[in-house]
Design a protein around this nucleic acid. Structure first.
Length: 919
RNA sequence: GCGCGGUUAGCUCAGCGGUAGAGCGCUUGCUUCACACGCAAGAAGUCGCAGGUUCAAACCCUGCACCGCGCACCA
């Protein structure tokens, strides 16, 4: 056992242990070891963006997973924590494209072309892709790195393709021209989930249109988007609206584009129940190409669809010469200008409305009609049932409601993206004209349902490989939504569809840890994929973390610059400190307001742990000697009972995913109970010169420390491993059960009835120890009240109500830092004015020779009397109520009676002391 | 509009039917032979508001207010 250094230096220690764990393959899962005695435990990591960097959100999320994984190992389970990264289509493509533009390599990705651009993305991925994985290692994540996966790995891509083909064959995937959410910046369709509604302060423009059949008569329309007027192909009113219903069937003159002949600008006035008479003017302009609701109205009335925008959100020629080429927001101003010139603009009023934004690019999405691929979600019923029946459990429970609501309102999923980076859609379109020949050319072996005539009449082939005659078939240029690959993550990472040992041993996984913000994007979809392809739920429990916010409660974001770099925090405080600080302040189901002070607390705690171990080491003696029950002091028994309680509480908290409760309990136990009271009290035994007592105390300390290190290990893997070895606790353990690494040691079990019986641990030991600590506290208050500096040794006198063991008196003396603690009989009377404290075990005196201030003491006692009297008033008020005495349970009434007599006795005593002052 | 959280000490949060708790911050004393990233003592709260249930409410119920989030939306 080499001596521990004086200060804890996390950096070197963290690096060393992580390397040793890796060198010994401590994190590798072995499916062949799984058995009824050694059950499997598995988690798949929520794959971070391959080009991302570690955020505090990742720290929270992955620390929780690491705690679960490490504890599961200590519980004797075969653990697989499967790591990996996500290709994150739009995000990654955007980053690479932006960088290439910045470097002046390209102006647009078209300059490179698809193949060359993708090469650049792969280059980028090779260069930056490993960063976040390395950062997770710094955090101490015990992932099985031998099984690390990437969603664009060849095997993974094969899974994605196989699933697409299967769903195509089942008819769950279809292509159609639909209104989708279009991001003009990324120039791709988005799913509904990728659109966030934002409140906007805009303007409601009122403009008038003339009724063609009744010159000089006008209708007033309210709109927020005057730039789309050129795309209007109808005017709708509510068919019940008395103001307008007689106009139905007539025509209005659309004001824009101005240069267009009037005859071409006539659009029909129609009745549609969708129009609310009470809103605006009750007249709605219908723009089928640029509004989802309008598209439906247009569809009902066979209105033409007139697209007036380009994919990048600028106006096209159909918008008219004044608007063509302008960005949509610029065009809005010009359109208003045009209306004003035409004297058609009646008024502009400020207006609050909600606009859908592209979550990624943070610009308003444009509803746009385009050809896209859609998926009707599979296995919906099983997926809903598994959560509502409780077979799969959400923590906190309330998220299951959110899940249920979404599952009950499923809309088909737009899965195609107009990007290059991602899994290319495995569909080929026939270029020729002879459909029969095309079918024949595919060969006999191709299943009938792989070939389909689409809505637009084109012939499509769907398969995991291109048709042989590549000249006649052209692959769809789009890729799949990133989530269409990540929804397969729990099994595609384990080698599915092959039924290999890993998949068999570890699927379904045990726990999933993720943020509630991706409950629809990811969690729900994984559940459906799990049932569809593995016939089983993908995970049994889902733990939803809170969201990390800054001190002001704002979400962490790059643009606000309010997100500290976790690596800086690790460098400054250590990984254990970061883990502990974050865990202690992350209660279940609540968002976390991050404050560096929390990490500081973690660091301080590590230092405390370190020094407690140092203190033990400085005492020398045998490591983990035998505890002999006959030499146990009440303090020893007390700390063993507290340890037992801590084991039980921490285990229960972790079983229920109450991580911050577990951290709190550990903190309280180790700092307040072990260090503040036990270690201090044990100094009496260690310095007593009684070797039996001394050895026994050291044995108890080792017992408590060894158990504590195990309890702390999932939270603080590095420092505990270091101390485990530093204190030599590994020495007499089998190699695989803690002899080599603490991380392989067994999780502590509650001490149990036999242990209690053998060492004579009784509840009254705890009560007695607490009473002695009260004596000490009372003495310290006396010191304080009479301005005795805490380092100044003064004599105290103790007058116990009943005999007390000399050793226990010595403990009190040490804890009081008293010069002497004279133990006197009940006949002893203190000099007049001696400060006195009443304690559960007797009276404690602080004789202040020559310094007695009778008035000061009288005043001090007076305050105490007031306090006791207040308590008595409260308790007597209750007891004097008949309804209380007859209505409350007997035990409660009894407890109140005891409270009353206790206070009364104390009052009598303290009055006697007060009287003695002046006698 | 519907739903879900939250409102407890200056700050961040536990507690969720029977004597209001922690950490930080603050005040005071202490370089006491593990630790000043420490030790000791302390100040500090009509538990958002109003009703109700109960012998008893911070805790259960009902309304309201404010903060946050989600879903759905009327141009």
């Amino acid at each position: 056992m080499s001596e521990l250094p004086k200060t804890y230096e996390p950096q070197a220690i963290e690096e060393t242990w992580y390397a040793r764990w890796l060198a010994d393959d401590c994190f590798t899962a072995h499916p062949e070891r799984v058995s009824p005695q050694r059950p499997a435990y598995s988690i798949v990591i929520p794959p971070p963006n391959v080009t991302g960097v570690l955020t505090l959100g990742h720290v929270l999320n992955n620390t929780i997973q690491d705690i679960l994984a490490r504890r599961a190992r200590m519980l004797g389970k075969e653990v697989l924590w499967l790591p990996g990264t996500d290709h994150a289509g739009i995000a990654t493509q955007t980053v690479v494209e932006r960088t290439l533009k910045k470097q002046g390599v390209i102006k647009h990705r078209d300059d490179l072309g698809r193949e060359a651009f993708l090469e650049k993305v792969w280059e980028w991925k090779e260069k930056h892709g490993g960063i976040i994985i390395q950062q997770l290692k710094k955090l101490g994540a015990s992932c099985d790195w031998s099984r690390e996966r990437f969603t664009m790995d060849p095997e993974y891509s094969a899974c994605v393709q196989a699933v697409f083909v299967d769903l195509f064959q089942k008819g769950a995937i279809y292509r159609g021209k639909r209104m989708v959410n279009w991001c003009p910046v990324s120039r791709t369709a988005l799913s509904d989930e990728e659109v966030v509604m934002k409140s906007q302060s805009g303007t409601l423009y009122h403009f008038r249109v003339e009724i063609a059949e009744r010159p000089g008569t006008f209708l007033t329309i309210a709109t927020t988007r005057p730039e789309t007027i050129s795309g209007d192909t109808g005017i709708a009113v509510n068919p019940e609206d008395p103001r307008y219903k007689e106009l139905i069937g007539l025509h209005a003159v659309r004001p824009l584009p101005v240069e267009m002949p009037r005859a071409q600008r006539l659009i029909p006035i129609l009745g549609d129940a969708h129009v609310e008479s009470s809103f605006g003017t009750g007249v709605l302009k219908v723009t089928p190409a640029h509004d989802k609701a309008d598209f439906e109205i247009g569809h009902r009335h066979q209105l033409p669809v007139l697209d007036i925008m380009n994919p990048d959100g600028s106006m096209n020629a159909a918008a008219g010469e004044r608007l063509a080429g302008l960005d949509r927001f610029e065009a809005r101003k010009v359109a208003v200008e045009c209306l004003r010139e035409l004297e058609a603009l009646e008024k502009e009023e400020p207006y609050q409305n909600n606009v859908g934004y592209s979550e990624r690019a943070d610009v308003p999405v444009e509803p746009r009609l385009s050809q896209q691929w859609f998926l009707r979600y599979p296995s919906q019923e099983a997926s809903r049932e598994v959560v509502s029946s409780g077979k799969m459990h959400f923590y906190p429970e309330r998220w299951s409601k959110v899940y249920e609501h979404w599952m009950g309102n499923l809309q088909d999923w737009c899965i195609s993206r107009q990007l290059w980076w991602g899994h290319r859609i495995p569909v080929w379109y026939y270029r020729g004209t002879d459909a029969a020949a095309a079918r024949a050319g595919l060969g006999e072996s191709v299943p009938e349902n792989c070939v389909r005539t689409l809505e637009d009449g084109s012939l499509a082939y769907c398969g995991t490989a291109a048709p042989a005659d590549t000249a006649l078939w052209q692959q769809d240029s789009d890729v799949l939504d990133t989530w269409f690959s990540s929804w397969l993550w729990p099994f595609a990472t384990m080698g599915w569809p092959e039924k290999n040992p890993t998949l068999q041993a570890f699927y379904p996984t045990t726990d999933l840890v993720t943020g509630p913000d991706i409950i629809f994007f990811w969690v729900a979809r994984m559940i459906m994929a799990g049932f569809e392809y593995c016939d089983a739920l993908p995970f049994k429990n889902v733990y939803f973390t809170g969201i990390i916010r800054d001190k002001q409660g704002r979400k962490m974001s790059k643009s606000l610059g309010n997100s500290p770099d976790p690596l800086d925090l690790i460098a400054k405080f250590g990984a254990d400190a970061l883990r502990f600080g974050v865990m202690r302040s992350a209660p279940i189901g609540q968002d976390v307001l991050f404050d560096e002070k929390n990490v500081e607390l973690g660091r301080n705690f590590c230092t405390k742990l370190w020094n407690a171990a140092r203190f033990r080491q400085m005492q020398g003696g045998a490591t983990e000697g035998e505890i002999r029950s006959e030499w146990l002091s009440t303090d020893d028994k007390w700390i063993l009972l507290r340890l037992d309680a801590a084991i039980t509480e921490v285990s229960a908290a972790l079983d229920e995913y109450r991580f911050s409760d577990a951290a709190q309990t550990l903190y309280r136990f180790f700092w307040n109970e072990y260090c503040d009271w036990y270690v201090e009290a044990s100094k009496a035994a260690l310095n007593s010169g009684d070797l039996n007592r001394r050895d026994n105390t050291l044995a108890v300390m080792d017992f408590v420390l060894a158990h504590s290190l195990r309890l702390f290990h999932p939270f603080l893997p590095f420092i505990t491993e270091e101390l485990w070895h530093g204190l030599g606790f590994n020495a007499d353990l089998p190699e695989s059960l803690g002899g080599r690494f603490l991380m392989q040691a067994l999780w502590p079990k509650p001490l149990g009835a036999d242990f209690h019986a053998h060492y004579g641990l009784l509840p009254e030991d705890e009560a007695y120890a607490n009473a002695r600590f009260e004596v000490v506290s009372a003495g310290r208050v006396l010191r304080r009240d009479f301005n005795i500096a805490s380092n100044k040794r003064v004599p105290f006198v103790f007058q116990p109500a009943s005999p007390i063991a000399p050793h226990d008196v010595e403990v009190i003396r040490i804890l009081l830092n008293a010069e002497t603690l004279e133990n006197v009989g009940t006949e002893w009377a203190p000099p007049k004015g001696t400060p006195t404290a009443l304690t559960p075990l007797g009276k404690l005196f602080l004789p202040l020779t020559g310094l007695v201030d009778v008035e000061a003491e009288r005043e001090r006692l007076g305050k105490e009397i007031t306090k006791i009297e207040q308590e008595l008033v409260k308790v007597r008020a209750k007891l004097s109520s008949d309804t209380f005495v007859s209505g409350a349970p007997a035990a409660v009434v009894e407890e109140h009676r005891k409270r009353e007599t206790d206070w009364e006795a104390k009052l009598v005593e303290i009055r006697r002391v007060t009287d003695a002052l002046s006698s």
